[in-house]
Design a binder for these strands. Structure first.
Length: 376
RNA sequence: GGGGAGAUUCCAGAGCGGUUAAAUGGGGCAGACUGUAAAUCUGUUGGCGUAGCCUUCGGAGGUUCGAAUCCUCCUCUCCCCA
């Protein structure tokens, strides 16, 4: 993987860059659609590629490990061959599941013992075996196993958890450097900053992560329920320490406004289930703001889904029709919403890149943040 | 023509003397969702001046301190036999 910065914004820490992987180049800032189980829900892989022109998608180690399992992925020759996506893939380590499946897991020094949400079977994730698993899945970028702490989280717990995440990182990094990719393309390893909402812990973590010398760095444990201002504050502190010549990836963020604010702080990469999940549940992010497609007010609104939208569904379908699909429980509704929302996010990132190159990003961002948060 | 069953809040359908503005499901309306246990979950759904009051369980009477619940008649549905 190679990263180079092409332009800097004049009035913020935003930058435009390019990541080169063996599965193509990625313009940053980038939003990466989440395809947990190897597929973006309600979306064809071909639409993700040809219609939306996404350059990278996510997969999840925990989910793919449980289903279809490593034997199948290995026999397929990795996830790229298995799902037919020939562009870049980033896999999460399962660290988020340490957080989201809190009821069915146990954290130990060695790693995490999980109970499968599918059949209750017990499995153990360690810093080492999650690297191995991600070698088998074959993502272009793979993540360190971390503990994503909840919010709120007391200082003592956050501090101890952070130390564990750092010890895990040391082991994972060592293992990563002593193992090889399996399918002929290179893989990059990203460590993850933790530290909850405590500035000193975040800064300490950022230093540890920066020292690792990985090709890119991630920030985790944010957007788990804390106020947005707190998230921005932590992001800003961390970005000041993480190396400027490497991509910074803010995990699990966020709303369109979140993205713009964090880009201004120096973030290059994002992923989030929001455009896909909320889309399936009827929430559309549009150039006019946020709208709930299920609301009665769209019943007879026969205007385009998003008059300023750039994806193919935006002019092709009316709000009235899409509302009808949601109300009737037709699966085409979630499918259209998914295309629209991802199209909106991806196009927003394209605009961001143009504004950074023009040097007008910061001012434009402030106008957009207000606009995009409005309820339509 | 004979015999039987039943009419409940938008719908279906409980309730069978007070704890019932009335279970439950559906539908409607609204909300939530941030490294996906999610095509999911939650709230709400007679009216109003909402710690209270008013109107409501086919219609009209009646019994009772009190009726969606018991009695009488009426109207209308459905099923079986001829």
């Amino acid at each position: 993987m190679k990263f180079r910065i092409l332009d800097h914004d004049t009035a913020s820490a935003a930058r435009r860059g390019e990541i080169l992987t063996d599965h193509g180049s990625i313009q940053t800032p980038v939003f990466m659609p989440v395809g947990t189980a190897g597929a973006v829900k309600a979306l064809h892989i071909n639409d993700l590629k040809d219609k939306l022109d996404a350059k990278i998608m996510l997969g999840n180690t925990y989910h793919l490990f449980l289903r279809p399992g490593l034997d199948v992925l290995s026999a397929a020759g990795g996830l790229h061959k298995f799902n037919g996506w020939d562009r870049a893939i980033l896999t999460d380590s399962g660290g988020y599941q340490v957080f989201s499946l809190a009821g069915t897991r146990k954290i130990k020094e060695d790693g995490v013992i999980f109970q499968s949400h599918i059949d209750g079977s017990r499995h153990s994730f360690t810093p080492e075996n999650t690297v191995d698993t991600q070698r088998i899945i074959g993502g272009d970028i793979i993540m360190a196993l971390d503990e994503c702490t909840p919010y709120p989280c007391d200082y003592d717990y956050a501090s101890k958890s952070l130390d564990l995440t750092h010890r895990w990182l040391k082991r994972a990094w060592h293992h990563f450097q002593n193992t090889e990719p399996l399918y002929g393309h290179s893989q990059s390893f990203f460590p993850i900053v933790q530290g909850s909402v405590y500035g000193d812990l975040r800064m300490k973590s950022a230093e540890v992560i920066a020292e690792t010398g990985a090709e890119g760095n991630a920030i985790g444990g944010l957007s788990v329920g804390e106020p947005a201002e707190m998230m921005y504050e932590m992001t800003e502190k961390v970005c000041a320490i993480l190396p400027a010549d490497k991509p910074r990836y803010l995990m699990g963020v966020g709303t369109p406004a979140n993205l713009l604010e964090c880009i201004a702080l120096g973030i290059d990469m994002f992923d989030c289930v929001m455009p896909t999940r909320n889309g399936r549940n009827g929430m559309l992010f549009t150039s006019q703001g946020i709208l709930n497609m299920k609301n009665e007010k769209w019943k007879n609104d026969h205007s385009p889904l998003d008059p300023e939208g750039t994806s193919f569904v935006d002019q092709a379908y009316s709000r009235a029709f899409v509302r009808h699909l949601f109300v009737a429980g037709e699966m085409l509704g979630p499918m259209i919403a998914t295309v629209h929302n991802l199209g909106f996010y991806l196009n927003l990132m394209k605009e961001v890149r143009e504004k950074i190159t023009e040097g007008t990003f910061a001012g434009w961002k402030n106008v957009m943040v207000t606009k995009l948060q409005q309820r339509v």
